[in-house]
């Protein structure tokens, strides 16, 4: 969607007002529109509120009455969270804790790897022109079109079996059981086209003087990249980092495919999707589990809203 540029000031942000003196807004202004917006906001918020309240109610209450009954009989407990994280609760063996740890252990490297590798590539494509560099950039750009699904099966075969030509192994099997490596690598690969494209747009517009002065002073390209380009590109890196972090944290498809849902390595969403299918009636477990998984993105959302929106808009066509 929107692209990041170093001079970007007017990025769309939900939390900023711009009073318009004339136009449609005033023409449409009426108490009716206030009511309409209020209504939408309520409809948008109530389902999440129901989730939160249910996750905090005692098990019996949840089973016997709707969550709105809470306002008549407020009982709060953190027992569901304890159960869902450590014990597992009714009919569910083991808690979600291992999956939460997996989510963290998957997301941090799967955010750092692509950002570093993509910014390296973006620097070359923007600042070390060579024959064919435009073509390479275009290919990166064009590959954003390819949906994940196109690569899933062959990539899984590659990771579990390696690649061989005749008797020669050209790509070793990564090994699937209980290792994070396949998910890290898969996320890094799938992030590449968008990451290179967005970071290139930003890095190409950095001031030429700063980079050339360092080069003439005798700094190697690596040095320039590390000491000049990366610090200057921090805003773009931060936006993309937030986007990629959320993307990986919220992802189901890649996590499910490349861990097979195993507790040793599978992230939260794949476990929740499983629970939702098989234990759909134990809402105290499901709602607490779901809330555990959404709380981190929500913290990011409410504390870094401006960067969050920028990152999200920049990356919204990914997949």
């Amino acid at each position: 969607m929107a692209t990041l540029t170093p001079t970007e000031r007017k990025s769309p942000e939900p939390a900023r007002a711009a009073p318009t003196r004339t136009g449609v807004r005033r023409a449409l202004s009426s108490p009716l529109s206030t009511v309409a917006v209020l209504l939408v906001t309520v409809v948008w918020t109530v389902p999440s509120l129901g989730l939160l309240i249910t996750s905090l109610r005692p098990q019996q209450d949840v089973a016997q009455t709707g969550w709105w009954d809470f306002f008549a009989h407020p009982h709060l407990t953190l027992a569901n969270y304890h159960d869902v994280l450590f014990n597992g609760g009714f009919g569910v063996s083991d808690g979600l804790m291992p999956y939460l740890v997996n989510s963290i252990a998957i997301t941090v490297p799967a955010t750092i790897f692509p950002i570093v590798l993509a910014s390296m590539a973006a620097y070359v494509l923007a600042w070390i022109p060579f024959k064919g560099s435009d073509t390479i950039f275009f290919v990166f750009f064009a590959l954003q079109v390819v949906p994940l699904q196109m690569a899933l099966v062959p990539l899984l075969q590659l990771f579990s079996g390696g690649a061989h030509i005749g008797g020669l192994t050209i790509f070793p099997a990564v090994g699937m059981g209980g290792s994070y490596a396949p998910v890290w690598i898969a996320h890094t690969m799938f992030a590449m086209p968008l990451a290179v494209f967005l970071l290139h747009n930003f890095i190409a517009q950095l001031p030429r003087d700063l980079i050339e002065a360092a080069r003439v002073d005798g700094a190697s390209h690596f040095r320039v990249f590390r000491s000049v380009v990366l610090p200057l590109a921090t805003p773009a890196l931060a936006s993309f980092a937030i986007f990629q972090f959320l993307w990986v944290w919220n992802d189901l498809l890649v996590g499910l495919t490349f861990t097979g849902g195993a507790p040793e390595s599978a992230p939260m969403p794949s476990r929740l999707a499983q629970l939702s299918g098989s234990f759909g009636d134990h809402w105290e477990i499901l709602t607490a589990g779901a809330f555990v998984s959404v709380v981190i993105p929500l913290i990011v959302f409410f504390s870094l809203q401006r960067y969050f929106v920028r990152g999200l808009l920049a990356g919204s066509v990914k997949g």
Binding site: T45, G50, D251, A290
Partner: peptide
């Protein structure tokens, strides 16, 4: 209003599905 309406964007589709499954 904008924050509350935009907020679901932060949640995973899995989380959103569970929220609505409950509805």
């Amino acid at each position: 209003y904008k924050s509350l309406i935009f907020m679901p964007m932060a949640i995973s589709f899995v989380g959103a599905s569970i929220i609505w499954k409950f509805v």
